[in-house]
Simulated scan of single mutants.
Amino acid sequence: MQFYLVAAGLSAMLSVMLGAFAAHGLKARLTETMLATFQTGVQYQFYHSLGLILIVLLYRQQPSGLMMWSGTLMLAGMVLFSGSLYGLALTRLSWLGPITPLGGMCFVFAWLLLVIAVIKNG
């Protein structure tokens, strides 16, 4: 679980840096729509970084394989969802668009597994 905690901290830090980069460095270079797309990636990355920290804290209280899978899916979701939005905004490569929902599904299943693990462990 230490890996997930380090990954969550680095991801949260990166989302702050990317948000600042978007606000100051990309504002004049991207269309309003692409800037909003980039910011959505930042927002979801930050929220799910906090979610991953929550998973680690809960795991320490009630270890569960389901929580391990939840953490893995949370990380995969950040890479696929936010990463595809960053790539789409910066490069406008349309083939990145279909990757975003895969990341979204990783988020959904990560949260679902977390709920199931908590219910199972009472």
Rank of each mutant, 00 (worst) to 15 (best):
L114R: 10
L73I: 10
G103S: 12
L73N: 07
V56W: 08
G97M: 14
L113P: 15
L52M: 15
W111L: 15
R29H: 09
F3Q: 08
F107D: 13
L96P: 06
C106Q: 12
L93K: 14
C106K: 13
T91A: 09
A22W: 01
L96M: 12
H24M: 00
G103I: 12
G19F: 03
L10Y: 02
V56Y: 13
Q39A: 06
M68F: 10
G9L: 04
L50G: 07
A76F: 12
M13H: 00
F107Q: 13
S84E: 06
L80K: 09
I116P: 11
A89T: 11
G103T: 13
F81L: 14
L80Q: 08
L58D: 09
G25Q: 03
Y47K: 12
L102A: 15
I119H: 13
V115E: 04
V16S: 00
S64F: 04
F46L: 11
S11T: 08
L52T: 13
T33V: 09
F21Y: 10
L85W: 05
F46A: 02
I55N: 02
A20N: 01
G103F: 11
L35T: 01
K120W: 10
R60E: 12
V6W: 11
F81D: 08
R60W: 09
A117Y: 05
G65I: 05
R92V: 05
K120D: 06
L93A: 15
G25V: 01
R92E: 15
G77F: 02
F38M: 06
